[in-house]
Amino acid sequence: MPKTNKKLIFGIPSKGRLKEQCEEWLSARGLELHQVGGSRGYKAKFSNFPNIEIRLLSASEITKSLLLGEIHLGISGEDIIREQSDRTDDLIKFIAKLGFGNADVVVAVPNGWIDVANMADLSEVASELRKSRSHRLRVATKFTRLSAEFFQKHGVIDYRLVQSDGATEGAPANGVAEIIVDITTSGSTLFANNLKILDDGLILASQANLMLAKSANWTDTLEKDCAEFITQCSLNC
């Protein structure tokens, strides 16, 4: 049970382009972020919303904290939170898509597989590989939950996920897997690694979202503060 907090806790990405874009987005809505303890501090505040405590966290810590109800609001990627829990829609209210941090989670196969254009083709190839090589098609990804759901939806059964936490696009060339599920923005990294996205291989068109944790400790005051904050952001809760 998260402890009762008198302030509305808001998680914002702590570094990188995502942090800059969050700051720009908030600033455009009259919400200037003031980092406590200088640019290396991990707390911040809004001068016009003193009852909001801002925590600067990694994108995945924000989503974990939202799912656990440890923070009330947060900005992070939809791909990250949907990968972390199959109960996302029960636990989280998606308040707004913010128009940045775009990343598509896609299924990509070697471009030399000229006979494979869609998931139905992939399903057949997976079955053929299993029959001829006695092992399942290996799919390198860090999105194991999203991949498994998507492959099941498309009736692909003869595959196995191989955990990959970085440089996933190199997995086929390195012999770690035959295909990948990864995020892409322009597709150029996939293309450079001789991979192509399947025609129906878009698993999730993700972007940064403002999210609310339904299971956080909400008091009447915090609900009121949240409503005011969202109004300030010109959003409908």
Binding site: N111, D115, N194
Partner: peptide, 29 residues
């Protein structure tokens, strides 16, 4: 024929399936 097609397109071969497997599957489909 498949090998030639892949080379002309500047695609990569290999990755567990060579031109023979691909040609066989294309004929079957």
């Amino acid at each position: 024929e498949v090998q030639k097609f892949i080379e002309n397109a500047d695609f990569q071969t290999g990755f567990a399936r060579g031109p023979r497997e691909i040609a066989q599957r294309m004929k079957a489909s």
